[in-house]
Design a protein around this nucleic acid. Structure first.
Lengths: 205, 205
DNA sequence: TAGATTGTTAATCGATTAACAATC
DNA sequence: TAGATTGTTAATCGATTAACAATC
């Protein structure tokens, strides 16, 4: 393990490597090379080798990378060798979709609570979960020690809720609301906004 | 307008500027500065000025940028000064959520069709739309001249459907399936995978 | 052994930042 | 006029690529 600061741009690619390796593993493959991985991902082989080598020597000359071993190492590096409790704030269509999404568990996440500020929605069942009142958000999150939240609420209330999440000790926010959030330095935010993503492509049409 | 090739990384930031300006405009603001915009977005003022100046001189020394004018220009540059027809493939929870999402229209997109390969779902009503059979995808998309698709299907069928979309003339794909897609050079793909996004933050926890 | 592929170095390429003249 | 802020240049910083010795 390297003590120097690893660039964010490298950390951002590791989940892609992890995902591709997980697919290969499910298909029964036992080893791969930087070239093969690169072709699947549209990333150069040199970059993949360089990224991975930041964290240790996980490959072998001549034979490449053992998939189960590299999977373990990447999970360890990304800290998804465990199951993180995650909450959803906002029980609209997107909140529903995320609450029912089956793809979290085998990638390190477990949705444990869903909140809404609409009293009509509080108490509603979504899969295994029951919608809780946003008024109890800070207390419940703090008590449970939850560090990760997904925001599926209107932009107009997103900063308010974010401030509460930060107060409650959340350090990672996946924001589906179409607005930039202000957070302290030690809190990470990732943005998912379909319209923004579409607008990144129309330029080229 | 500059004839040189504009870097992708700049194009990727323009929708964020557009979104922030749209908010400001809705709040009745008439002008802003690179500094103010930068603070809202967590981007340096120098970078914002440099990005915008790639396309022309849209500001004024001493007073900054007129919001309505810059909005117009950014929409024109990104080609969202019009309404693009978009399809959704996959009528599961995520497809439903996108089909009902109200945030597309005033950002340049109009969802016109939704497809599924499950005969039980074909014919189902979602908002104004009726689920169509994926078997008719290529023909319907080609006839309608649609260039943009959102994919909310399982990873296992994502590449197959992508190949069909490419065949039908689609040039921009927003992919919610957790897998990397192969497409020709003239087709753009954007990826939305909540687990990947979460894994980009756990490293820092 | 011969072929394949890593890890790493050095070179290249590209993006960001700082600074400031121009000017509203 | 004085203050503010752009557009742009040059300097800095960082990321990617090419190449190859090491070695499985």
């Amino acid at each position: 393990m390297n003590a120097e600061k690893i660039p964010d741009v490298i950390i951002a690619r590791l989940p892609l490597y992890l995902r591709a390796l997980q697919h290969m593993s499910e298909n029964g493959l036992k080893s791969t090379s930087s070239q093969e991985l690169g072709e699947k991902l549209g990333i150069s082989a040199a970059q993949i080798r360089k990224d991975i080598s930041q964290f240790g020597e996980f490959g072998k000359q001549g034979t490449g990378y053992a998939i189960p071993y590299l999977l373990d190492k990447l999970r360890e590096i990304l800290k998804v060798d465990r199951l993180w409790d995650v909450i959803i704030v906002g029980s609209g269509d997107m909140g529903h979709a995320l609450a029912r999404y089956q793809g979290f568990t085998d990638r390190g996440f477990n949705v444990v609570m869903i909140f809404d500020n609409d009293k009509d929605k509080v108490g509603e069942k979504i899969g295994d979960l029951t919608v809780k009142d946003s008024a109890d958000l800070v207390e419940k999150v703090k008590t449970a020690g939850i560090k990760i939240a997904m925001l599926t609420i209107p932009a107009s209330v997103a900063q308010d809720i974010t401030d509460k999440l930060v107060e409650a000790g959340v350090k990672a926010i996946l924001n589906y609301a179409p607005i930039s959030l202000s957070v302290p330095n030690d809190v990470k935010v990732q943005y998912i906004d379909p319209a923004t993503h579409l607008q990144r492509m129309t330029y080229y049409l």
